[in-house]
Simulated scan of single mutants.
Amino acid sequence: MNTPNIVLTRVDNRLVHGQVGVVWTSSIGANLLLVANDDAAKSELQQELMAATAETSGVGIRFWSLEKTISTISKASPRQKIFLIIKTPQDALTLAKGGVPIKKLNVGNMHHSGNKVSLTKKVYVDQADIAAFKELVKLGVDVYIQDVPDEKKILIEDVI
């Protein structure tokens, strides 16, 4: 079993879009986008749209369920520089508890819905999100909010 070369994990409820697929991918030197999301793993339409963005950046893209990510990511080649993209902090926690070695968690976009409150202008959370972030920090994950690479990081502990 290899330790996969995960260069960054990002929570973004939009998953792969221009900012993720172009700006972040080039900034971190990733050559593979791994979308770990149960819905996207089953949706051809979502996959087509996200694959077009990856193609623009000249990187590979995979769409795996959370379970497949947990069971398969350790088989990744060391030359794969993986940008792991997930939709929620709960997904990050599921992956981390499942043995996926997430060292850094970049929180990008979490849209407002229901009873979520604002941490920043692009990150809205509820109690379940906060609990997941706190548990990830306890597991030793460096969790921070950063919309784009040239913005200053905001440590999650400073805002929850």
Results as ranks from 00 to 15, higher is better:
residue 49 L to G: 04
residue 49 L to Y: 03
residue 50 M to D: 01
residue 50 M to C: 04
residue 50 M to E: 00
residue 50 M to Y: 00
residue 51 A to Q: 13
residue 51 A to L: 05
residue 52 A to F: 10
residue 53 T to R: 08
residue 53 T to E: 04
residue 54 A to E: 00
residue 55 E to W: 04
residue 56 T to H: 00
residue 56 T to L: 06
residue 56 T to N: 00
residue 56 T to V: 11
residue 56 T to F: 05
residue 56 T to Y: 00
residue 56 T to W: 00
residue 57 S to Y: 01
residue 57 S to V: 00
residue 57 S to C: 02
residue 58 G to K: 10
residue 58 G to W: 04
residue 58 G to D: 00
residue 58 G to C: 04
residue 58 G to A: 06
residue 59 V to Y: 00
residue 60 G to I: 08
residue 60 G to N: 14
residue 61 I to Y: 05
residue 61 I to H: 02
residue 61 I to D: 00
residue 62 R to L: 08
residue 62 R to E: 12
residue 62 R to M: 14
residue 62 R to K: 15
residue 62 R to V: 07
residue 62 R to Y: 11
residue 63 F to G: 06
residue 63 F to T: 07
residue 64 W to V: 07
residue 64 W to R: 14
residue 64 W to Q: 09
residue 65 S to N: 04
residue 65 S to M: 12
residue 65 S to E: 08
residue 65 S to R: 08
residue 65 S to A: 03
residue 66 L to E: 11
residue 66 L to W: 00
residue 66 L to I: 10
residue 67 E to F: 12
residue 67 E to A: 14
residue 67 E to M: 09
residue 67 E to N: 15
residue 68 K to M: 11
residue 68 K to H: 07
residue 68 K to I: 05
residue 69 T to N: 09
residue 69 T to M: 09
residue 69 T to S: 15
residue 70 I to N: 05
residue 70 I to T: 07
residue 70 I to S: 11
residue 70 I to V: 10
residue 72 T to H: 13
residue 72 T to G: 14
residue 72 T to F: 07
residue 73 I to Y: 13
residue 73 I to F: 13
residue 73 I to R: 11
residue 74 S to I: 09
residue 74 S to K: 12
residue 74 S to V: 11
residue 74 S to G: 10
residue 75 K to Y: 12
residue 75 K to M: 14
residue 75 K to L: 14
residue 76 A to Y: 11
residue 77 S to K: 15
residue 77 S to V: 06
residue 77 S to F: 09
residue 78 P to T: 10
residue 78 P to E: 13
residue 79 R to C: 06
residue 79 R to V: 12
residue 81 K to F: 08
residue 81 K to R: 10
residue 81 K to G: 10
residue 81 K to Y: 09
residue 82 I to P: 11
residue 82 I to C: 11
residue 82 I to R: 09
residue 82 I to N: 07
residue 84 L to G: 06
residue 84 L to Q: 02
residue 85 I to R: 04
residue 85 I to Q: 05
